[in-house]
């Protein structure tokens, strides 16, 4: 089959998607509202699916199409939908409190991106020339998601951060190495889903015990006050 786009434009699209991924990570870091956080997560999932599809076109691997479809349905649609429903059922409203202000978190995020690229540079030598920047971006997105988990107080935003980390790992695996075995992918997807379910159960328990989803109540659980 002759590709309907030439290689150069395909790679450009992939790079554009990577940049978009990083931008979404920053947006997640900055966003205060829970509902918007979930939307951003959904966008990230869709981006991920698109980039997987691009890789599928690029390499001609049929299984990657399955993977892209799976990503789209699970990460782009199902999990955001579930989170959305959870938000409604738990009736969480308002903003997410952050332990640092947005500006400093963003600055910290930039430092992390530079760090991630510095880390990825020596590794990139072993990768296909076309995907040099991808590993850095994936690592940066991962660290940014981690930073987001650290700076948030509400339980739901922790889950969003966790899923964003998962997305970043996934992105790194598919884009930087141009595809990964379907079985690994299925495993990761299942893990994410299970983690989501467990955390969902925990939310209800946390709220039952403390009548709030604010995590600082958990500090009462430590020993030796």
């Amino acid at each position: 089959m002759r590709p309907f786009l030439d290689l150069f434009s395909l790679l450009s699209i992939l790079k554009f998607l990577a940049a978009w991924m990083l931008l979404l990570s920053f947006a997640l870091l900055a966003q205060r509202r829970l509902l918007s956080l979930i939307h951003l997560l959904a966008w990230q999932g869709i981006t991920l699916a698109l980039s997987t599809a691009m890789v599928a076109v690029l390499t001609g691997d049929r299984l990657l199409w399955v993977s892209a479809t799976l990503t789209l349905s699970l990460k782009g649609l199902l999990i955001p939908f579930l989170l959305h429903r959870l938000l409604r059922r738990l009736q969480v409203r308002g903003d997410v409190e952050m332990s640092l202000n947005v500006a400093s978190v963003q600055l910290l995020g930039i430092v992390l991106v530079i760090f991630a690229f510095a880390l990825a540079a020596p590794l990139a030598g072993s990768l296909p020339a076309a995907t040099h920047g991808m590993l850095g971006i994936a690592l940066a997105a991962f660290l940014l998601a981690f930073l987001m988990m650290i700076t948030r107080r509400k339980a739901i935003s922790e889950v969003v951060g966790f899923l964003a980390m998962d997305n970043a790992l996934f992105f790194g695996a598919t884009s930087a190495t141009l595809g990964m075995p379907l079985i690994v992918e299925l495993g990761i997807a299942l893990d994410a889903l299970i983690a989501f379910l467990i955390l969902g159960v925990f939310f209800f328990h946390i709220r039952e015990s403390f009548e709030s989803l604010d995590l600082h109540w958990l500090e009462h659980l430590r020993e030796n006050q």
């Binding site: 332990s99 660290l143 981690f146 930073l147 988990m149 650290i150 700076t151 948030r152 107080r153 922790e158 995590l215 600082h216 958990l218 500090e219 009462h220 659980l221 430590r222």
Partner: peptide, 12 residues
Amino acid sequence: HGKISSYLLYAF
């Protein structure tokens, strides 16, 4: 000390 964000910070 029970703060999840600090635990995450340790891991980070």
